[in-house]
């Protein structure tokens, strides 16, 4: 590491118009694209995301990367959801790229339609990105997404996975982890929280479609996220990236813990990070310091009941899930 001792480093604010510092304290070669003056800016400041919103961070990094690698030639379609609502408070918009929102369940098809237009007009430069939350992706938008994969339309679909319908007040989606409290799976009764042995893991379903590229990413490792988006953009056809984005509101966590929680999810084994090409796993990110799942769970109120002695069976089930992931994706 050629990193300087940060105590000796002169703090210099390269980025204008914001007070965030982040990794600009690093040497240039270690910085994310966001840290340069030349950075693109898909989503402007001033949007209405909650404090500590993982999705806002993930979306900005993902789309800025796509902007950079396409020389700003991207069009984005958005499902109804937090990202859509917080970026377009009428009459303002945070989007500096062409952006369309149609419905909750159809973003994949809207994006396919845009790609079809580009194809008809012979525009191979402009690329299309579809984005939605996990509800808009794994539940209501699932058929359209599977259709996009089936046709191998030239679209990068990004799912911001925070494990529930946060925009409508934290209800369960098919991406909600087992045991989690949501407004429709309250920690009451014999089986508190969301049921186990339910739900779907969309990256695996995407892989089953044998599309060119599938990846999972997490907002604690923005370098990795940028690399994966860049890689995704090097393919033509349908691509899918699912980004783990903590939601302080829905998870009952502190806004300041978003990055930490994203990291803990990965390091506990509950959020596997990997890449796959044409249905085959090509890479998985090793866990650097494995942590017990309860460390991850206890920072989130949605799992508070799981840590009670009476619910030790639930904790065991979650541990087993982490073990299964570690084995399946060779995370250690």
């Amino acid at each position: 590491m050629t990193q300087k001792n940060t105590a000796e480093q002169t703090v210099k604010f390269y980025q204008t118009g914001t007070f965030t510092v982040g990794n600009r304290l690093l040497d240039e070669e270690f910085r994310t694209v966001q840290a340069t003056e030349e950075r693109s800016n898909s989503i402007d400041s001033g949007h209405r995301a909650c404090q500590g919103c993982g999705q806002a961070l993930g979306a900005r990094y993902a789309l800025d990367t796509a902007m950079r690698v396409t020389n700003n030639k991207i069009i984005a379609a958005n499902a109804t959801g937090c990202l859509e609502v917080f970026t377009t408070p009428y009459p303002e918009t945070a989007w500096s790229i062409p952006w369309v929102h149609s419905l909750f369940g159809n973003v994949a098809s809207v994006a396919s339609g845009i790609a079809a237009t580009l194809k008809a007009k012979g525009d191979s430069e402009t690329r299309v990105i579809a984005q939605g939350g996990d509800g808009g992706t794994t539940d209501i938008g699932f058929a359209c997404l599977s259709g996009l994969f089936d046709r191998n339309d030239d679209v990068l679909y990004i799912c911001y996975d925070n494990g529930g319908y946060m925009n409508t007040g934290v209800q369960r989606s098919s991406a909600t982890p087992g045991g989690a409290r949501t407004a429709t799976t309250m920690p009451v009764g014999e089986h508190p929280g969301s049921s186990f042995n339910t739900g779907k893991f969309l990256p695996a379903i995407a892989m089953a479609h044998e599309i060119p590229y599938v990846a999972t990413a997490s907002v604690h490792d923005l370098h990795d996220l940028e690399r994966k988006v860049e890689k995704a953009m090097s393919f033509r056809g349908a691509r899918y990236i699912q980004i783990n984005v903590p939601c302080p509101l829905g998870w009952g966590s502190l806004p300041a813990h978003t990055i930490k929680l994203a990291r803990m999810g990965v390091e506990s084994g509950l959020v596997p990070l990997f890449e796959a090409e044409y249905g085959e796993l090509t890479q998985s990110t090793k866990i650097r310091y494995q942590i017990p799942v309860e460390d991850y769970l206890k920072a989130q109120r949605r799992f508070a009941h799981v840590l009670k002695p009476a619910n030790v069976a639930q904790l065991e089930t979650i541990r087993a899930l982490a073990e299964k992931n570690i084995k399946r994706y060779a995370l250690l």
Binding site: S109, V110, A115, A116, T117, A143
Partner: peptide
């Protein structure tokens, strides 16, 4: 549903 959504994206583009 996909068909009309596809139309929406295409027409908007």
């Amino acid at each position: 549903f996909a068909s009309m959504s596809f139309c929406i994206g295409a027409s908007a583009a």
